[in-house]
Nucleic acid binder design. Structure first.
Lengths: 141, 141
DNA sequence: CTCACTGCAAAGGTTTTGCAGTGGG
DNA sequence: CCCACTGCAAAACCTTTGCAGTGAG
């Protein structure tokens, strides 16, 4: 996931958000860090180029980005929230041994699930999104 | 999910755990409360019969129960962890509007997924468990 | 120029930890 | 009896909040 600063600037503009150096840095960090960073990892990463950023600001910006559908939260096993810059539907491989979460996009699987739930309606429930938590272990890493 | 105190006592014994009033109360609370209580809800529930229990103890006992595969953690959107007494494979309906998490057992779906991943092997990853996060909204409630 | 955004610091909520004392096997 | 478990209180975490000051549009 590589976006230029110009592309990131544009993503913010399109949503009517003010383009601040902090927002650029944070969204860039989510993209560059890739594998579902925590707020803390984002702060760490940003401090290299942006030493004065406040952690409160990072949380506020992350919330704003979520509200504007530029990033997503990922539910995790540990206390800390993680953030995900990929907005296309995809699933997650969880390895509890080393706390890794990998992306698992699979169009065929999405199609299969869609067809299944077309037939198998859930009473009184309207599905918006289905995310698989595929838990297991990596053979290497 | 209704277990007698004797059954709960037995579940603990089988795992080689000491049967203490606190552990009985906590496991009983997870079963009785049903829909994925938080630690706080468990403490609240237990205090009625067990006013002196320490919250630290509750967290320790919950960890012990998880290690011994008597309960599971449920990943959630908010900061707080939730606990689940159903050990059979099942999925979850998430409604973010009212923070409800409902169980969704579905053997046919499990079979479908199992067959799918028999064919569609994930490189270097060994699947232990698949849980669907089915996100959406309840029509009533 | 103005209002949304940032920095700072304090507070809030949840979970963990250490240690002395207790009770289950 | 002995070691695992509990109660208590402090601390560690992560995240939110309020407010004064700043800067993007």
């Amino acid at each position: 996931m590589n976006f230029t600063i110009e592309q990131i600037r544009n993503k913010l503009s399109v949503k009517g958000l003010k383009v601040t150096p902090q927002r650029l840095a944070i969204l860039d960090a989510v993209y560059q860090l890739g594998s579902h960073p925590t707020a803390d990892q984002i702060i760490e990463f940003i401090r290299h180029t942006n030493p004065n950023i406040a952690s409160g600001t990072v949380y506020k910006v992350l919330d704003t980005l979520i509200e504007n559908r530029l990033i997503k939260k990922v539910y995790t096993e540990t206390g800390a929230m993680r953030y995900d810059g990929i907005m296309e539907n995809h699933h997650h491989l969880y390895c509890s041994e080393n706390d890794i979460i990998e992306d698992f996009p699979d169009k065929d699987l999405d199609k299969l699930l869609h067809e299944y739930f077309e037939k198998r309606k859930i009473k009184d429930f309207h599905i918006k999104e289905i995310v698989l938590q595929i838990k297991g272990t990596f053979d290497r890493h």
